[in-house]
């Protein structure tokens, strides 16, 4: 059975439908990119998959045994108050909260893994720094390290490279590719169609026309060709 199945899902707000009757599924090890114009409902879909908001109709099914505590998430905009006093390490460790259940403290293994994830994201040196004093790109990496702590099967990323410089963007894509090779399924929202066509195994296109399929199929579809052309022009 697929890791995650979206069945006949309709999304919208207050009577306005954004996406109707969407069907797709995600297998283990898939790398799914969600593309589409601003306001086409990409973030809404991701939040619905995560159970943060209810769909208009339809459902999202997880494979048996897969719980939300196996999912990592990098939000598009974090509604974190600007003046929150928290160190990088405290934030990264909080990624383990979902699997803690009622256990009050983090165990040694979790602390070690938090360290490892900070090292991977290149923020280990910053671990005692205050989050709000970091640059936007550094903050993004800290949140990704936190998401890695939470992700055991699936990682959902909402525009992970927005605000990163070209070098950090390249590193981010390499890192995600590595994680995907290790078996983590990825769902990534991206406006970078070039990267989507380079790294993704599957593409979901939201908009007036909806498309779901493998990367090759997308490149050969009418929707895909038009979108790639337009995005290419706007670059």
């Amino acid at each position: 059975m697929a890791l995650l199945t979206v069945q006949d899902l309709t999304l919208g707000y207050e009577g306005r439908t954004l996406v109707s009757h969407l069907n797709f599924s995600l297998e283990e090890g898939d790398y799914l990119c969600i593309v589409g114009e601003n306001g086409s409902g990409k973030s809404t879909l991701m939040r619905t998959i995560l159970g943060l908001q209810p769909p208009v109709s339809g459902q999202v099914l997880f494979r048996e045994g897969l719980k939300s505590s196996h999912v990592g998430y990098l939000p598009q905009q974090t509604p974190i108050q600007r003046d929150f006093p928290a160190s990088v390490e405290e934030i990264v460790r909080s990624g383990f909260q979902g699997r803690c259940g009622l256990r009050p403290f983090y165990d040694r293994e979790e602390k070690a893994m938090a360290r490892e994830n900070m090292e991977r994201m290149g923020v280990l040196d910053l671990r005692d720094r205050c989050y709000r004093e970091l640059s936007g790109g550094q903050q993004q990496r800290v949140l990704l390290a936190r998401a890695l702590c939470a992700a055991r099967k699936v990682l959902l990323l909402d525009e992970p490279v927005s605000g990163l410089d070209p070098k950090a963007t390249g590193e981010m894509y390499d890192l995600l590719e590595g994680l995907n090779r290790e078996g983590l399924a990825l769902i990534m929202i991206s406006h970078d169609i070039g990267a989507a066509l380079t790294y993704a195994s599957h593409i979901l296109h939201l908009g007036q026309q909806v498309f779901f399929g493998t990367r090759e199929a997308y490149q050969n579809s009418a929707v895909g060709r038009r979108f790639v052309e337009r995005e290419g022009d706007s670059l």
Partner: peptide, 23 residues
């Protein structure tokens, strides 16, 4: 407070992340 300290932190810092990842 001591028993729920880390949970209070997680929920205060980023409630939707906490909710989405199983807290």
């Amino acid at each position: 407070f001591v028993l729920f300290y880390h949970k209070i932190f997680a929920v205060t810092f980023d409630e939707s992340f906490a909710q989405a990842t199983g807290t």
